[in-house]
Amino acid sequence: MDKFIVTSSPHLHKKESVRRIMWTVNMSLLPAAVAGVFIFGAGAAWIMALCILSAIISEAVLQKLTHRKISVLDGSAFLTGLLLAFNLPARVPFWIPIAGSFFAIAIGKQVFGGLGQNIFNPALAGRAFLTASWPKYVTTFTAPFSCDATTCATPLTLLKEGPGLDHLSYMDLFLGKKGGCIGEVCILALLIGAAYLFYKKYITWHIPLSYIAATALVIWIFGGKPLFSGDWFFHILSGGLILGAFFMATDYVTSPLTGKGQIIFGAGCGLLTAVLRIWGGSAEGVSYAILMMNAATPVIDRFTANRVYGS
């Protein structure tokens, strides 16, 4: 820092910077990425590389065009690309990741003024765009451990459409032996990454815990035929809930600042996720739930702001 800043004491210095935090989050997603490649094959790695590359190139080109400082190495475009890839099936046409990454960076982020200004989580904006534009590619999932690209429904889709789920044990769901997006299937790998972020104190318990608890509660009450009999544990382990709760709802820019606000935010995400899963048109609801609560973040921040001392 080459600027001389005068402030009153006490002074605290922290080595954190945007770049450091972003790359740490990228690191924490590594186990899930490896698990995704292990489960779905090299195709998954190809999708991730495409997403990341096109996100970085889009960001650089847009920053060049708008005469802003080119900051592609701060890891935020890398993170957006990686998270978008985590939300895609392992076999999609090559232009899907490119279009999604471009939309995520251009419309989700740069239009608002770049990192720190965006209202919505860019990766989820990209995913919503892809789902609305080309649903048939984005919702056709490959079966795990299949070399010949057999398609396979996700556990949540199976549940929604009625056929039994007897062949899936909780252990399968936990380790990722199920159909789904690249990054969401292996809960174990995601939890390892999340534990690292907790250890580094980059995320707090407020959002993930209230998110998962609210989802589980609503599913438990309304998810089954009689009240209070929903299989909440199944719902926690399937779909993108863990990925969403630990890595996407906790995005600094688009979530509330205070602990109280974060609990409200997480509970809202959980309620919406459960509602969308039980009564919604599609099987999964995590991405739309987080996007909707992103839109509510400024309001939450306004009503939960810390009181200025003495006022």
């Binding site: 239009v111 765009f129 609305a132 534009s133 080309w134």
Partner: peptide, 19 residues
Amino acid sequence: FDPVRMIGLPSGALLVIGL
């Protein structure tokens, strides 16, 4: 050509006009 269906939806109208 695989059309970008979202641009034809109402959200696409807001997006195009805004841009």
